[in-house]
Amino acid sequence: MKLAALQLQASGDRTETIGRAADLIDDAAGQGARILLLPELFAVPFVQPEPDLEYFELAERLDGPSNRMAAERSRQHGMTIVSSIFEAADVPGVYYNTACTFVAGELRSVYRKSHLPFSNGFPEKFYFQPGGSEPEVVDTGETGVGTIICYERHFPELSRIVALRGGSVLCVPVASASAPMREVFQLELRAHAVFNGMFVICSNRVGKEGVKDYFGLSAVYGPDGDVLAEAADGGDGVAVAEADLSLVELSRRRRPFLRDRRPELYGRLTKMGPTA
């Protein structure tokens, strides 16, 4: 099957941005993509360093315009699309950073970002309530797909959960503009692929937004950590890569990290603060 990472610059016009995203999805589908990932909060500008009360006006419901487009294109092309939105919850004043997985037009998973930064110019705790559920794995009929969101790539426990739940493809929508993070960006993503024996799709924003300059590097990684396809530098685009799913099982046999885990030794990981 083919996997696709969509890279996009968000303008101040949500409708225009969604239209460009739809065209790129059509392009990826024309290349045979079966699973496609959109960037974090793809349809609107991302948060700036200073908290802004007006930013909440960009929030939308789960059935808002961003997800309606993703659902429609998922149905039209018979593909799996992972969308990412600034979600306005049913409870007034509650907002989430949310990823939604559509399979052939059907909403199959809603995952809310549980690890939120307030550093490096990303005051996300000001805007979003953290989700309270571990990543799910969606059976697309062809493979298992799980999603973690941006900052969560720094927490290897989450991608390991996706692997343990049977996932073969990890989706990581991001909004990454930090110069220090660029130095380790692909290193981290390659590591997730290798230590879990899975394919990884990462979709980033690109271009200037306020004081931030998003660096792209949207790509598809193989279970050996290889970069299978990468979007062109500096603009909108899609990276489409052929994924031989048999390599997931082969990788896990060659490097049996899941087999050799010792959960009985890891209790310290779930305790707060220093322990003796």
Rank of each mutant, 00 (worst) to 15 (best):
R262A: 14
A59E: 08
L170E: 08
V103R: 02
E188W: 09
R252M: 13
A243Q: 01
A22K: 08
G216D: 13
M1H: 01
P92Y: 13
S203H: 06
S159V: 11
L24K: 05
L37F: 06
F118L: 07
V44T: 12
S84R: 00
A10Q: 03
A29K: 03
E87G: 04
R255E: 13
G237V: 03
D244H: 07
G216T: 07
A231D: 03
A239F: 08
Q48F: 13
N204M: 07
R255W: 12
S203Q: 02
C202A: 15
L187A: 13
F42N: 11
Q31H: 09
P173T: 05
E106K: 12
V110K: 00
E50Y: 13
H115C: 13
P117G: 03
D233T: 09
R61V: 06
E57H: 10
R255S: 10
V138I: 08
P51W: 14
F195C: 03
R61T: 11
K113Q: 14
K113V: 08
E142H: 04
A241F: 02
G93V: 02
V227S: 01
D26H: 05
I18N: 08
F102M: 12
R165I: 07
A28E: 10
E124M: 10
R108A: 14
N196S: 07
A191I: 07
D139T: 00
T80G: 00
P117K: 01
I35L: 12
N97F: 06
P263Y: 12
L187M: 13
